[in-house]
């Protein structure tokens, strides 16, 4: 189900915790699985649960509790735009509006070519750089303006 490389990464996470506490690595393991598979299908969650010897429903609780896990397929690039107060004061609404118009989709939608998914995010702890957006959960883009947003879209092949 997961590649040897992914399993190796999971093993490294498991090693951070006491031997009887494998399930502590579930957040990392789900992240690693999601990165490899694109999203967390029930089978993927169950695989991770079995790997960490925890009940599948417990892993599902985790996968559904934290916002950055995707329980349904997303585009190749998931753009999560923070619209919380600081970012909004600093222009998040116009950036989000621009992205929606440019991509022709609303929040929680994916472009028909499967390339982009747009999500609304909560505070990312980077308000000084607001407005900010996160690309695929890992790349933080700050000081966004409609023009800057265009530049980033173009960069994502």
């Amino acid at each position: 189900m997961l590649s040897p490389a992914a399993l190796q990464q999971i093993d490294r996470e498991v090693a951070k915790y006491p031997p009887q506490r494998k399930e502590s690595a579930v957040m990392s393991a789900l992240r690693i699985a999601q990165t490899e598979r694109g999203w967390l299908a029930p089978e993927t969650i169950e695989f991770v649960a079995n790997y960490l010897e925890m009940p599948p429903i417990a892993a599902f609780e985790v996968a559904s509790f934290y916002n950055m896990y995707d329980l349904s397929p997303v585009g190749r690039y998931k753009l999560t735009v923070c619209t919380n107060l600081s970012c909004t004061l600093m222009g998040a609404e116009s950036v989000a509006g621009h992205l929606k118009q440019k991509l022709g989709i609303g929040f929680n939608e994916t472009t028909p070519d499967g390339k982009f998914t747009l999500k609304e995010g909560e505070c990312m702890g980077a308000c000084g750089d607001g407005p900010v957006a996160l690309v695929n959960n890992v790349r933080m883009c700050g000081k966004l303006t409609p023009a800057e947003a265009d530049r980033i879209l173009a960069e994502l092949e």
């Binding site: 502590s24 957040m27 992240r31 417990a58 985790v62 934290y66 916002n67 909560e122």
Partner: peptide, 19 residues
């Protein structure tokens, strides 16, 4: 992985325990 509440210290501990 995207839950403000984990800043609350006991929620954080639960999260550290894989819940």
């Amino acid at each position: 992985y995207g839950a403000y509440i984990c800043g609350e210290e006991t929620a954080l501990l639960e999260s550290l325990e894989g819940k």
